[in-house]
Design a protein around this nucleic acid. Structure first.
Lengths: 110, 110
DNA sequence: TTGTAAGATAGCAATATTACAATGTACTCT
DNA sequence: AGAGTACATTGTAATATTGCTATCTTACAA
């Protein structure tokens, strides 16, 4: 059906999945990588950097913006994007919490 | 087009995205949550736990298995699934590395 | 062997995603 | 105003995902 039954799951699980989905495309990972490298905010010369069309990049940027990972400020005709530090930290903690919940009590399992 | 241009990106970016995609569905997050809680390996009574059809669960399990996050051992007619400890650790590090690459040099940005 | 139980797989319908060309919008410069 | 630049949005085509029913497959029990 292509539609996710979100109501079956907890808010946390849905949130985790939502963030993961934003990170689930290499172009978006590449955008984030680039934004981290160019610590100062860069604009859509991502189009040059990655080999995708301008419209495609714009769409990926929007998805990242929608989950709050990045934010953009208009500077004349250009737009400066950058990582949202608070959100970034929150997401980092969300993932760390999940990952650290599992302990390898080796031998218990399969 | 629905097809990802993986060749444009680095192997790391593709790998990160691939793992993120496996985590990008609440049902799969719920499965992992459940496997962590029931430290001992449980089988497909996930069908009871989550409210999805058996076939759907089976499909999600396969996706998690494909990226190596979980593994299953056959026990008679049942299958015991559990987290793959090594892979889990590797993924944890992959994410930690990415998340810690960004420092909030506050004020630099937007 | 026949039946049964637990999972896997195939095939389908509905919906989502990816990517792009074309177009729209907003700002800047002359 | 008119032209150009930088993005965003819209529309569209191709493909992927989600979830299900129905149907294997495998292991075990009688």
């Amino acid at each position: 059906m292509g539609i996710t039954k979100s109501n079956l799951f907890t808010e946390e699980q849905n949130e985790f999945a939502r963030v993961a989905k934003a990170l689930a495309h290499p172009a978006r990972v590449a955008i984030i990588d680039h934004l981290i490298k160019q610590n100062a905010c860069i604009n859509g010369d991502l189009v040059q950097e990655l080999g995708l069309a301008q419209a495609t990049i714009s769409q990926h940027l929007r998805e990242l913006k929608e989950v709050g990972i990045i934010m953009g400020t208009i500077e004349g005709t250009k737009v400066s994007y950058c990582i949202n530090p608070e959100r970034w930290k929150a997401i980092q903690q969300l993932f760390e919490a999940t990952f650290s919940r599992f302990q390898d009590d080796d031998g218990v399992c399969c």
